[in-house]
Simulated scan of single mutants.
Amino acid sequence: MLDSSILVLGAGGFHLNIGDMLASLIIFVVLLALLKKFAWGPLMGIMIEREQHIANEIDTAEKNRSEAERLAKEAQEQIKATRQDAQEIIENAKQTAKSQEQSIITAARQEAERIKESARQEIEQEKDKAIQALQDQVASLSVRIASKVIEKELSEKDQEKLINEYIKEVGEER
């Protein structure tokens, strides 16, 4: 027997109720529509927002990484330039020190030569004074001897004795 509302198969009691099935199907479709509108749509919107947010974060991270690499490269170049500048400053300082060393040595040598020349001149002057003083003493001594000789005529031995005495006197006066 075939009934529009019930389908019975065999002796085991398996019954299909088409009305219940249609009602269940309609409720299921309505439920799916409601889920799509109120749950699936907002859920997908959140997922899309989340996907966009993650994509933006990845882009920002890439930009930041690129910027960090660029800044690191610039810093390396600046460090390199600074090292070169420092090396140039050191080289200039060494050259300046060498030239100052040479000028100091030259000035010291010139001063030493000036002092030696001044000492030579002083020694020469003292020597000239000593010679002049000696000449004056010899002249004075000669005059004394001559006056004594004139006062009395002496023998050669007496003259030698007299000269030796005067030489001793002159030696003691010093």
Rank of each mutant, 00 (worst) to 15 (best):
T82N: 09
A146E: 08
K127P: 02
F38T: 05
S5N: 15
R144E: 07
S5Y: 10
I150D: 14
R83H: 10
M1N: 02
Q125L: 12
I131R: 02
A81M: 03
N17H: 04
S118N: 11
S118G: 15
I89T: 14
Q100R: 10
A68M: 03
E67H: 03
F14R: 07
F28G: 12
E69W: 09
E117I: 01
V143T: 15
L141H: 00
G45M: 14
Q135L: 12
E69F: 03
R83Y: 00
I46M: 06
R144D: 08
V170Y: 15
E51D: 08
A75K: 07
S103Y: 01
P42H: 01
L43D: 01
A11I: 11
N64R: 15
E151Q: 07
A139W: 12
A133N: 11
S147A: 10
I58C: 00
S118E: 11
K73H: 13
F14A: 02
A61H: 02
Q132I: 11
R83G: 04
L162A: 01
D3N: 05
S140D: 13
R50L: 15
A139K: 12
Q110T: 11
N56V: 08
V170D: 13
E49T: 09
S140R: 13
G10W: 00
A75E: 04
L154F: 05
E156A: 14
I46V: 14
K94A: 11
D3S: 06
A23C: 09
D128L: 10
A133R: 12
Q52N: 04
Q159D: 12
K116H: 03
K157R: 13
A39Y: 10
L22F: 08
Q84K: 03
V29Q: 00
H15S: 07
E122D: 03
S103L: 01
M47Q: 02
K127H: 06
L22H: 03
A107G: 10
Q132P: 09
K37E: 05
D59M: 05
L25V: 04
F14N: 09
Q125S: 12
Q84R: 09
Q102V: 05
R65V: 06
A81H: 01
H15C: 14
A119E: 08
S155G: 01
D136T: 08
I167N: 04
Q102M: 02
K80R: 09
K98L: 12
D59F: 13
L16P: 01
I167F: 07
E113K: 06
A93P: 00
Q76S: 07
S5D: 14
I131W: 11
A133K: 09
L32I: 04
I89W: 01
M21K: 13
M21V: 14
T96F: 10
I150M: 15
V8Y: 03
